[in-house]
Nucleic acid binder design. Structure first.
Lengths: 350, 350
DNA sequence: ATCGCTTCCTAGAACGTTCCAAAAAACAAT
DNA sequence: ATTGTTTTTTGGAACGTTCTAGGAAGCGAT
């Protein structure tokens, strides 16, 4: 029967004794080896069931080349975009027979360093890191030097050849600008995101070149940095509207900022989508349910997560470190927050 | 210098050799023992730094009574409420020197069983489980029989004496009803949540007794079950409004449902807070930023998470299993979605 | 019977820590 | 110097697996 006295686990040797075989045989049964006679296998499995045996991975990892544990370090789990990313990654690892563990750093590089240390001590076979803001560029050097496969998500580390997966920020920003230009806007702002953010720099670059290509002056465009939060969106909007020639539409750093911008507009009596066009970035699940539904750059987060997981798995299995990035496709999901005609159905994701 | 050939880790013995001491001494230094002479300690630490030693918890756990790893199993990480809970729990464990790992089950009991098995194999010292919908009542029996400290979050398991932490659902629902009654509402609905949900049953019970205490007929009140999502909120609202005597206000299963209800109202040309009163439950971070800002039952998620972590830690440290529940305090956060006068400042959390 | 060949099973040495018991070193008091 | 006491240090046996090499059983052919 189940049980077993608490605090004294059943081991492989006890199973061996109960089944009348050696511990080696039990080990073979555990890894579903071909070369053990069916009758023996059944006897062992019965003992495993009867004694309530629990496999001890810690002990096993001591002998094996690498564990089956992988880690994902997320810079802000409360952010729905990150949560979706984490879940996408987790799913792929799970499917591949690895055990994924999530840790949150809440944008603290200090905390991140601790978590990385702990993951290493725990013996992770690979790691996906969505780096906290202000992460020093050498934060992962130890890990990489030790040969642990690492893939960065979203945020790059300067001067390091660590593979990275993320959406095509430049193209996304360009698509947003093109849409607004098409709708007749001439004064377009870029709102939100921390000024020191690498991702923001990329989106801003796409924004500016698209503006130039459309014959507009990038230097004249309002760009307001602010925290990538709803509050930040409100602030950025206020900054933008306080200009001499306020913009008539905005590309936002991400959806959360866009929500804030919509909120700020309403507070000023302006209806998003009618008096002012708003486009977000990411296409989080709420975007389609927002009021008004948010026009945004859809990035297929889950797909990005799967891709990151695949990269790590490949590195683990081949033992070789890729340096190849994966820039995910993006597309414009047209909804109501930017005005203009709508597509046939309000779409969601590719 | 850093490095060390990949795939061949530095061990305690090598540190010992480098520092000219025995491995026992290195072990003592690692656990910051008092009884090692400072000069020796420094020598060892220098060797640790120079050789790039990484502690191997797997090996250590083999000898020790229990590991320092704790697990949290969350039924839906994409749900902001759950994410906030997870982060709160994580923080407490971290502060106590334990290593918390998050796993998401996406409401799948099958997945949950796998995850629990993996956590056990990994040798967790304790576990916090926010059970997936449809979890069989015996899902944790093995864990409990083996003496692993477990605390349930939010959802109880029938017929088991496993401690649980969660908000005071009955009181919360009552506070919401009392508010609406105070504002003059007579036909109040309860919207959203799966019909088979234990949490919903509790909230519904509080809703009904409060209604009865206010002299209203609980049996006459509309209660519409639906998925606890924005879409579910929209559906539940439609059901409610289709009644012969439609309600004039609603207590919602949670904030997400409430957001859906607000959305549905707008689509019908009704302004939440003016034509129809909406009260949510949980007070997720978005509630205060929603449009209109959501009146809701604030539950202090982070506090709940901390409390859950404390319980597990106590069980780990004392080796005894509590069976004591913790029902967290709740209070009404009055904002605009229910109409009526506002407090001085739009508040957030206790 | 003995020999080869499979097929199935096993002893025992790892793996990197912790911890007990006891040795060695350091110091203080004679 | 010797002794006693306290402070430091150490050998070596665990812990629960995996894995290599080889042993035992079974079986058909000589």
């Amino acid at each position: 029967m189940a049980a077993g006295s608490p605090r004294n686990r059943v081991t492989i040797v006890e199973i061996a004794a109960a089944a009348g075989v050696s511990k080696s045989t039990v080990s073979l049964v555990l890894k579903a080896s071909e070369s053990v006679r069916p009758s023996t296998r059944d006897r062992v499995n019965a003992a495993i069931r009867d004694l309530g045996y629990v496999y001890n991975r810690g002990a096993a990892n001591l002998r094996r080349a690498h564990s089956n544990m992988v880690g994902m370090i997320i810079h802000d789990l409360i952010n729905p975009f990150c949560a979706e990313l984490a879940v996408g990654i987790e799913r792929s690892f799970q499917a591949a027979g690895y055990v994924p563990f999530i840790a949150n750093t809440a944008e603290s590089p200090v905390r991140q360093a601790e978590v990385i240390k702990l993951m290493r001590e725990q013996g992770v076979a690979g790691l996906i890191v969505s780096a906290a803001r202000g992460t020093p560029d050498d934060a992962l050097d130890g890990l990489v030097a030790a040969g642990v496969p690492v893939v960065l998500a979203m945020r790059r580390l300067k001067g390091r050849r660590i593979p990275m997966v993320g959406p095509d920020s430049r193209l996304g920003a360009r698509l947003a600008v093109e849409r607004l230009v098409e709708l007749g806007h001439r004064r377009i702002a870029f709102l939100g995101g921390y000024a020191d953010s690498v991702v923001r720099a990329e989106r801003l670059e796409g924004f500016r070149t698209a503006l130039a290509d459309a014959g507009l002056d990038p230097a004249a465009a309002v760009t307001a940095a602010a925290a990538p939060t709803r509050d930040g969106g409100v602030q950025a909007l206020e900054m933008a509207l306080a200009q001499r020639h306020p913009p008539t539409g905005a590309v936002c750093f991400n959806d959360i900022v866009a929500f804030g911008v919509c909120l700020g507009l309403r507070r000023k009596g302006i209806e998003p989508g009618r008096g002012f066009a708003v486009i977000g970035f990411d296409d989080v699940q709420e975007a389609v349910h927002a009021d008004p539904p948010l026009t945004t750059i859809a990035v297929d987060v889950m797909g990005l997560g799967e891709r990151a997981a695949q990269s790590v798995l490949r590195m683990i299995e081949t033992g070789r470190n890729t340096t190849e990035d994966h820039i995910g496709a993006v597309h414009l999901a047209v909804r109501e927050s930017c005005g203009g005609p709508l597509p046939d159905r309000t779409e969601r994701r590719a």
